[in-house]
Design a protein around this nucleic acid. Structure first.
Lengths: 211, 211
DNA sequence: GTCAATTCGATAAATTTTTAACGATTTTGC
DNA sequence: GCAAAATCGTTAAAAATTTATCGAATTGAC
């Protein structure tokens, strides 16, 4: 257990966790970094380092890690055992999908409310009028805001969030957001992912693995 | 114009594009890498290199790039002008959101159909029964598959896609997919993004920029 | 018990990505 | 025209990330 971890490594942790849980349901008790690496098609040393960074007990030569312990350590490191509250701005299709996304619960994220111009109900959760966002965030001391509004309003909504105490913003729009220092913006950019995907695809097709 | 570009840089391109288009609507004709970097809070050299890698004409000292040309080059490089067809497996909330996501059109992605156990209609697009996926993908020579099914079925759906000629898979589930070499999997992992977000948030709170 | 096989953890090398430094080029103002 | 300011593109350095190497520790077979 190291405490610090690279950003890239951090992104891999949820993968390990998912994998380990699956293995556990299959009855696996011990698991080595080697096995994880082979199954997930990752470099062995990379996996070993990643796991070493989060595991409290470490692994044992020849046997590897105890699955239950490693899962616990991963969940703890990722903060899945310590629920954080968030709000969503924008209850269009994407906002609704996130609002209804059951997995967030497992990841320690509780979406307490969504806001939009039109009130409605999604999956049993109420969508409140946008004007109420500031008040609710301040009162409940919400620190995470998720932005799913149309690009034109993104910056304005962002400013509102910052004003009422939000410290981290998960931005699902494609626009850049200006925030004061001390506020985090994490971009979830479908266009960027798609770009990587199609570029690689083209590469594969052209450079001849296929055809 | 270089042709090759790093994966990280590729992910930044859609950002530049979005930004440039916004600037253009504001009447900007020429724009420098310096300005882009300042506005997007990126390193100047990085932006300059990224743009140099895609721009055919290059920029001119003192004036920078011609906005229209740079936009065109970015779109061309990203393949937005050359539409690729894709199918979606799984028309739950997320699948529906993607199916209805208008922006994909601008990114050169055309989702021609979605498949699920229950037939339905989403946003004017038909959701077809899952059994028809293989046939349709083969006939239309679809190369991109988007997976939004529950994690338990992900691998099975993936295998089906591979079997009918899909070469690139955009995986919105949290499970690892095994594919033969020559098939690409791009993971879109909300859990991973969330992990990065909350880790950074915790960091900020603890290490005292805030409180 | 000893030996071979496996895995860990650490240190070192290689690669990739980001950032800095600098000369060359073009515009603007005089 | 000429000097100053701004920007480009290139080359070099720094930082981050990935991959390789190696000795030590543990298990299981003989």
């Amino acid at each position: 257990m190291n405490g610090t971890i690279s950003k890239q490594a951090l992104r891999r942790l949820p993968f390990y966790l998912e994998y380990l849980k699956k293995k556990q349901t299959e009855g696996v008790r011990n698991i080595s970094a080697t096995t994880v690496a082979n199954d997930l098609k990752l470099n062995e040393v990379q996996v070993r380092k990643d796991l070493a960074a989060v595991s409290l007990t470490g692994g044992k030569p020849k046997t590897g890690y105890v699955a239950t312990e490693l899962i616990r350590d991963l969940e703890s490191f990722l903060g899945y055992d310590n629920t954080k509250e968030a709000v969503i701005a924008g209850a269009g299709k994407l906002g609704q999908a996130l609002l209804a996304y059951k997995e967030f619960e497992r990841y320690g994220l509780d979406i307490v409310a969504a806001f939009d111009t039109d009130e409605s109900v999604v999956d049993g959760k109420r969508v409140l009028p946008a004007e109420k966002m500031s008040d609710l965030c301040s009162r409940l001391k919400i620190h995470i805001g998720i932005i799913c509004v149309p690009p034109e309003c993104a910056q304005q909504v962002c400013d509102e969030m910052v004003a009422c105490g939000i410290l981290a913003i998960w931005n699902f729009t494609s626009v850049h957001l200006s925030v004061p220092s001390g506020v985090l913006v994490q971009y979830e950019n479908l266009a960027a992912s798609l770009a990587v995907l199609s570029q690689n695809l083209e590469f594969e097709i052209r450079d001849g693995h296929i055809f």
